[in-house]
């Protein structure tokens, strides 16, 4: 039997893994973004010492490799009596880790906005939260779109690390199929292709955000160096 045929006959495994990857990635990216927007609001409007502590945690998180952080949650915390299954640990790790990166991107972008807007919004009776949600945050997202896009792609790639803490996602599925039927080329090429396809979709989405930003006069330099 042809190796591609073997793979085709076991497509359920690969597609199941891909679905898990998409769920992990999709839920985590959205939750991480929501969490990060609250973190940024807390840093900007909270009391000074509180903001400093939050920033310290965010900076510390950004110096850790994702996998050691996942290890900490999955293997380390049970020593303290806190036990998660692999999926829960994976979700918590992805969400909190990437929230730190998103928060740093949004915080840096906020510093480039003019303060006059906030004053004008206040004069119109906006509360802080409403002003943030309706005026500040949309601008931050549009301005920082390419950098946020890079980080979202890193979030997608980090889901693969979860195969090491036994989450059955795409890489784990490809690995299982290849070791069972010894078709490493076919299995991993398909897996890499699926990651690539997903990241292309993300980039297309970011490009559309870019056009939207351009139309609203919030253009940015397209410097899409990594991460």
């Amino acid at each position: 039997m042809n190796k591609w045929e073997i793979l085709w006959n076991h497509r359920e495994m690969i597609l199941g893994g891909f679905k898990s990857t998409l769920v992990l990635f999709g839920v985590s990216a959205i939750a991480a973004f929501l969490l990060s927007s609250l973190i940024v609001l807390a840093i900007r409007t909270g009391r000074a010492p509180f903001g400093r502590v939050v920033r310290g945690v965010v900076d510390g998180m950004r110096m850790l490799p994702f996998l050691i952080y996942a290890y900490l949650l999955y293997y380390g915390l049970p020593s303290l009596g806190i036990r998660f299954d692999a999926w829960t640990a994976g979700f918590i790790a992805l969400i909190t880790y990437h929230a730190a990166y998103f928060a740093e991107i949004l915080r840096g972008t906020w510093a480039t906005l003019s303060t006059g807007q906030a004053e004008a919004a206040r004069a119109h009776g906006f509360t802080t939260f409403m002003m943030y949600r309706r005026i500040i945050l949309p601008q931050l997202v549009l301005r920082a779109a390419p950098v946020l896009g890079n980080q979202v792609i890193i979030c997608l790639k980090d889901t693969a690390f979860l195969s090491i803490i036994t989450v059955r996602e795409l890489t784990a599925a490809a690995s299982a199929v290849q070791s069972q039927y010894f078709i490493p080329f076919e299995a991993f090429i398909v897996a890499i292709g699926l990651y690539w396809l997903t990241s292309m979709l993300i980039e297309a989405l970011v490009a559309r955000l870019g056009f939207a930003a351009e139309r609203k006069g919030l253009g940015y330099k397209l410097a899409a160096v990594r991460r």
Binding site: I153, L156, K157, T159, A160, I189, I192, S199, M200
Partner: peptide, 14 residues
């Protein structure tokens, strides 16, 4: 483009 999209775990196994 492929390098940006491929997780290292997958690449190193491959």
């Amino acid at each position: 483009s492929l390098g940006r999209a491929t997780p290292l775990v997958t690449l190193v196994l491959f």
